[in-house]
């Protein structure tokens, strides 16, 4: 890599970070994830625990088990369990708006005339999205620990920390899943040259089509084989390998046990490598009009 490219990537990353940091839509997306994560990870469970009522996600769970789920030792599981479904969907929205809006606003045109090569600009944008994903994860982790400590303190429970290994495993798996969906959104935004179509298509795919295909796959084996390489299946299975999947139970939406942990990790990793290359290929060869 030449010095020119390195400088271009650095300057592009600094520029992208500045504009992402000041973009309300980014904060809304991140805020939505944190709110959903808190609601489904702690709020509903705590309300069920204190009221004794069962919600759809706590049916058949004892109060002791509910409390245990909200303790610091269980943070590695709670932290990642929402990622295959709404965490991934929200990161896909983030990637799609970062890439797609630039076409409608004409900002890519402006940026491509500033000096850095298209490769550098794209790399800078992808690094910035990755920084945003990491920021989301760190914030989410801190908030999850904060909630679990408050609940443990309120309920007079002794504090047991999770093992470092479990934390690293969760963080790594969660990062791969969120990064994959953010990159998928980035590619969709680039393909569609706008955020609306890419967000719509991406969400329908992630939340509906993949589920339907897995349903069909139970009847048709070629479709089943196809579903095993889909991003949703891989992401769900990767998280499923960490948090576990209830056999025959309703379980957490999006968390699957279709693939083994290793297989799922490799599949998600392949997406994380291939998706930026697809975006790069498209951006480099396209006319910017």
């Amino acid at each position: 890599m030449t010095a020119l490219t390195t400088n271009g990537i650095l300057s592009s990353t600094r520029a992208e970070l500045l504009r992402l940091r000041k973009w309300p839509a980014v904060w809304v997306t991140i805020g939505a994830w944190l709110a959903l994560s808190l609601m489904f990870g702690y709020l509903f469970n705590y309300l069920s625990y204190t009221s004794g009522d069962s919600s759809f996600s706590t049916e058949g769970t004892t109060k002791a088990a509910l409390l245990a789920e909200m303790m610091p030792a269980n943070v590695p599981d709670v932290f990642v369990q929402g990622m295959p479904m709404f965490g991934g969907a929200l990161m896909m929205v983030l990637g799609a708006i970062v890439a797609g809006n630039g076409y409608g606003w004409g900002t890519w045109k402006t940026v491509f005339t500033q000096g850095p090569s298209r490769t550098s600009v794209l790399a800078g944008s992808l690094v910035s999205v990755t920084v945003a994903v990491l920021g989301v994860m760190v914030t989410s982790l801190v908030v999850d620990f904060g909630c679990s400590l408050v609940i443990a303190g309120t309920e007079g429970q002794s504090i047991v920390w999770p093992s470092l290994g479990a934390m690293v495993e969760s963080f790594g798996a969660g990062f791969l899943v969120l990064e994959m969906w953010a990159l998928a959104g980035f590619v969709l935004g680039t393909v569609a040259r706008g955020p609306a179509l890419s967000v719509g298509l991406g969400l329908v795919w992630a939340l509906v089509i993949e589920n339907l295909l897995r349903g069909v796959g139970q009847l048709l084996s070629p479709v089943e084989a196809f579903t095993e390489i889909l991003p949703g299946t891989a992401a769900g299975s990767l998280i499923g390998s960490i948090v576990g999947v209830e056999r025959g139970g309703d379980g957490t939406p999006g968390v699957l046990d279709v693939l083994s942990g290793t297989q799922a990790t490799w599949t998600v990793a392949v997406y994380v490598v291939v998706l930026p290359l697809v975006a790069l290929w498209l951006v480099r060869r396209r006319d910017v009009v």
Partner: peptide, 27 residues
Amino acid sequence: GALIEGPGFYPYLSGLDNLRVMARYRG
């Protein structure tokens, strides 16, 4: 330095911040 077919800037940023972003791109 170029202005091609109308200015393309980030609508949510101020004029100054838009230029700061472009200044960062240019180093």
